[in-house]
Nucleic acid binder design. Structure first.
Length: 517
DNA sequence: GAGTTTGAAACT
DNA sequence: CAGTTTCAAACTC
């Protein structure tokens, strides 16, 4: 019997020579500080763009450009008009501010919330530069490069309205404001990322009515906001904070009124959180996440069906779910409320599944919520992606827990590593493992075609270059389609495409400079 | 499609 | 934390 650990030494050399540290066997032994992280998308662009000089072309029109495309599971749902780190241009509403219900005056209403605004390229770049590469890559990949794996659409449910992970959270008092109700000052809270742990933190400016209190500010985990706030308004600020529970979101009633001065361009959504839940749920669960239908689906916005995205008519769908997560389950005893259920584990509600007595649906939101809570109580990381890109410090392309296979040799889909098309690592506790690079058995499986060779995109550099190229092509095609649609002459179309290309290049170069610095 | 095997999740 | 049971997916026939 030889374990992965025993095999590791012999494997390391070849892996390291070929693969990035992120995929190298046993790479967890290598210090993984932020400065030593895997080559990022930016880095790869740097590699691919050496020597080139580009002139910055200020975007004359808010055409969708490379970085303006949404990224992240839900990023296509909305865009922001203000930096996540540049808080409301308008003052935070003060105590006593009245917010009339309805679309009147300056009140921020649901209709207005449906308005989409574009994020500046610079802002996007800035945001991109502060998020971990894994997320960026992930978001790019899932956002608009996995077009060939788009799952089928499913009926929208309230759960679908769950807002994406957010950079900014607005904490609100317990009850939604009613007409004429005095609303204490809303609080802009910034979700920060602990560099050390990757844990999401929330830093809040104190609400106005708390300024006089002894509590200077909030700073802590989201879960620490159990009281006095039970409702959390969340907006997406254009970039995702990694979600440990994609798609899991408890009850989602109608979005409600938000203060007029907050620079929101999408509806805030109220997460109804049971009184004790915020305290009991630790940071492993991100409430501010959930599947959301894309504006690009040509599907009416679930909240504001009449709203029209201001995006270029790009003909692809950005969607959260990948093909695997939509595989129907066949649970019979778990009610699809345990991690045995892939749908539940992936944060999806069951749809078109073959399960029996399913509670993982919108009709059983409370049970579902309780089940989520139980899972998180048991294991705060329960919903974190098993393959390492869930948080800073995790190694991409490696199972975060490792497998425990004993009889399959890790060469069958029973093995989670094999299933994820990654090699076992020293973290695995498997027995008689054959899922390592130099394994003759694995070579046989690979050559027989039963196991895919690593996607060229598996290697970060190649992956990012490919992404950049593909995304640029998408931008150019969109521009071409728009030119055609608007009846421009061929010369005009050429010009438009070239301008778009210039913008893409500009952003690529900006990214290079940012990563270089 | 039924039965078996497998390993993760859940439980004790 | 280790051992056992439960569970659903993967696999075989």
């Amino acid at each position: 019997m030889e374990s992965c650990k025993e095999q590791e030494q012999s494997v390391m050399h070849s892996d390291v020579a070929v693969m990035s540290p992120s995929q190298s066997h046993g790479s967890q032994a290598t210090p993984h500080t932020p400065s030593e992280r895997e080559p990022s998308c930016h880095h790869s662009m740097e590699n691919g763009g050496t020597g080139a000089r580009f002139h910055s072309v200020p975007p004359p029109n808010p055409q969708p450009t490379l970085s303006q495309f949404p990224s992240g599971p839900f990023a296509d749902f909305s865009f922001l008009q203000s930096s996540p780190f540049q808080f409301p241009l308008d003052p935070i509403p003060s105590v006593g501010t009245r917010y009339p219900v309805g679309n009147t005056g300056a009140s921020w209403t649901s209709e207005k919330a449906g308005h989409f605004s574009m994020m500046s390229a610079e802002l996007c770049g800035a945001i991109a530069s502060i998020i971990p590469d894994s997320e960026e890559e992930n978001s790019l990949e899932k956002g608009f490069l996995r077009q060939d794996h788009l799952p089928e659409q499913r009926p929208l449910s309230r759960t679908d309205l769950c807002p994406p992970a957010s950079m900014t959270v607005f904490l609100k008092p317990l009850d939604p404001p009613e007409e004429g109700m005095v609303v204490p000052g809303a609080t802009a809270c910034q979700v920060l990322r602990s560099i050390d742990s990757g844990q999401q933190m929330v830093h809040c400016e104190p609400p106005n009515y708390m300024r006089s209190s002894s509590e200077p500010q909030f700073q802590g985990n989201v879960s620490e906001f159990g009281t006095p706030f039970r409702k959390v308004n969340a907006i997406q600020m254009g970039k995702v904070v990694p979600s440990s529970v994609p798609g899991l979101c408890p009850v989602l009633p109608q979005p409600y009124l938000a203060p007029p001065s907050l620079p929101l361009i999408r509806p805030t959504t109220t997460l109804l959180v049971p009184p004790t839940s915020l305290n009991s749920l630790n940071s492993g669960y991100n409430f501010l996440s959930g599947p959301c239908f894309s504006q690009f689906h040509q599907t009416p916005c679930p909240v504001y069906p009449d709203s029209q995205p201001k995006m270029s008519p790009v003909r692809f769908s950005a969607t959260y779910w990948d093909a695997k997560s939509r595989k129907p389950c066949s649970c019979t005893k778990s009610q699809c409320l345990k991690l045995y259920c892939d749908c539940f584990a992936n944060g999806d509600i069951c749809s078109n599944c073959k399960c029996i007595n399913c509670y993982n649906n919108t009709e059983h939101e409370y049970e579902r919520y309780q089940a989520i809570k139980i899972c998180l109580d048991r294991n705060p990381e329960a919903f974190r992606p098993k393959i390492g890109n869930g948080k800073r410090g995790e190694i991409k392309g490696r199972h975060n827990k490792g497998c425990n296979c004993k009889r399959s040799g890790c060469l069958k889909n029973y093995c989670e590593c094999y299933e994820a098309k990654i090699m076992c690592s020293s973290i695995c506790k498997c027995v008689s493992c054959r899922n390592y690079d130099e394994s003759p058995e694995r070579q046989t499986v690979v050559s027989a075609g039963s196991m895919d060779l690593p996607d060229p995109g598996f290697y970060p550099i190649a992956k990012c270059q490919k992404k950049v190229v593909e995304t640029t092509c998408v931008c150019l095609l969109a521009q071409a389609e728009e030119a055609e649609k608007e009846g421009h002459t061929e010369a005009q179309a050429e010009r438009m495409i070239l301008e778009e290309f210039g913008q893409c290049l500009t952003q690529i170069v900006q990214s290079i400079f940012k990563s270089g610095s």
